[in-house]
């Protein structure tokens, strides 16, 4: 089994790389302005927030669970940040508090799912509504936009000679951190083993409940960081922040080769699929495709991404079938 995953996944990552290049070429044909460093870094803005959520979701999915409340946690985070900003806290105090609030929201999901054994989909569907409602109740319908400039640098300023946005650096750091965690530590191995077989992992001494709760808490904390980036990029906080972005997030994770049933997948695949989706979205924006069209394309990609293993299995069966026939003849 391990041999199969080892040979199968890198090829998928290679396919993703090829697709990214193809999407880039397509985009550069659409617009002469595409191939400039500024434009490309500018386009990364679009997938940083869903990207941070996708990294968190990838951890949760590796254990065979799911969390669709992450976008709502972003709204809770932005509203909390607006309240802290209004109360006169500095960003250096407010930011850790927001990240902790995100982690607490995630932990609540994790406790309900892992400790009490409730189905993760139903629980996070419930908390998705509950958290967003909470964000609206706390933040009221009117958004908050009076953020001090010190709250906005994470989304608006650039580093290295005014080229690389800070939010991109945040994403890269988070991606490297999650990659190390999932592929170079016991914690990551435990996550994947739980996804493959929770009972066997439990017998092998893995603390299944604790590990699951930790993945949810980390995903929540990443959503808290995403909330900071949101405020930095848009300068506003309202209960409907990041509403509907969960589709993009789930698509990125699934298209990145994470098995939605848990146990298989790589963080690098998720990052590559984010780059691919970001490039496609940027290209569609340059080609003046409307938002609805983009949503349709995203939906098709999502279903295609999940159908991929089934299609590959069917192809393999057909190939085996024909080779058997040839061997028989």
């Amino acid at each position: 089994m391990s041999m199969r995953t080892r040979t199968a996944i890198p090829t998928w990552e290679l396919v993703l790389c090829v697709l990214i290049v193809a999407a880039g070429v397509w985009s550069s044909k659409l617009s002469p302005y595409y191939l400039s460093i500024d434009q490309i870094f500018e386009s990364t803005r679009h997938f940083i927030i869903p990207g941070l959520l996708a990294l968190g979701l990838a951890m949760v999915v590796s254990t065979g669970e799911i969390d669709i409340s992450l976008a709502s946690i972003v709204a809770v985070g932005t509203v909390a940040l607006s309240k802290l900003a209004a109360a006169g806290f500095s960003i250096y105090v407010a930011a850790p508090i927001v990240i902790v609030i995100g982690a607490l929201c995630g932990t609540l999901n994790g406790v309900l799912v892992a400790r009490y054994g409730l189905p993760s989909l139903a629980v996070t569907l419930g908390t998705m509504g509950a958290y967003r409602g909470l964000a609206f109740i706390v933040g009221s319908e009117v958004g908050y936009t009076d953020f001090d400039d010190s709250f906005l640098w994470i989304g608006s300023e650039k580093l290295f000679g005014d080229i690389v946005p800070i939010s991109f650096c945040v994403f890269v750091t988070a991606a490297i951190g999650v990659w190390l965690l999932m592929h170079r530590t016991f914690f990551g191995r435990h996550c994947f083993s739980i996804g493959l077989n929770p009972d066997a992992s439990w017998f092998a001494g893995v603390e299944v409940v604790k590990v699951k709760i930790r993945t949810y808490a980390l995903a929540g904390a990443l959503a808290g960081i995403a909330a900071l980036v949101w405020v930095g990029q848009y300068g506003s906080a309202r209960g409907d922040n990041a509403d509907g972005s969960i589709l993009f997030v789930v698509t990125a994770v699934v298209l990145g080769g994470m098995d939605i049933n848990g146990g298989r997948g790589t963080i690098s695949g998720v990052v590559l699929s984010l780059l691919l989706l970001g490039t496609i979205r940027n290209g569609m924006g340059l080609a003046n495709f409307g938002g609805p069209t983009q949503t349709v394309v995203l939906g098709v990609l999502l279903v295609g991404g999940v159908l991929r293993p089934a299609l590959a299995a069917t192809l393999a069966r057909l190939r085996r079938h024909t080779s058997d026939k040839q061997a028989g003849a």
Binding site: I68, L247, G290, P292, T293, V296, V300, V303
Partner: peptide
Amino acid sequence: LIATLGTMSLYRGLIYI
């Protein structure tokens, strides 16, 4: 969940178009 999440946006997007 994945299939219907996809078709959810697909159907809604088609009405928009």
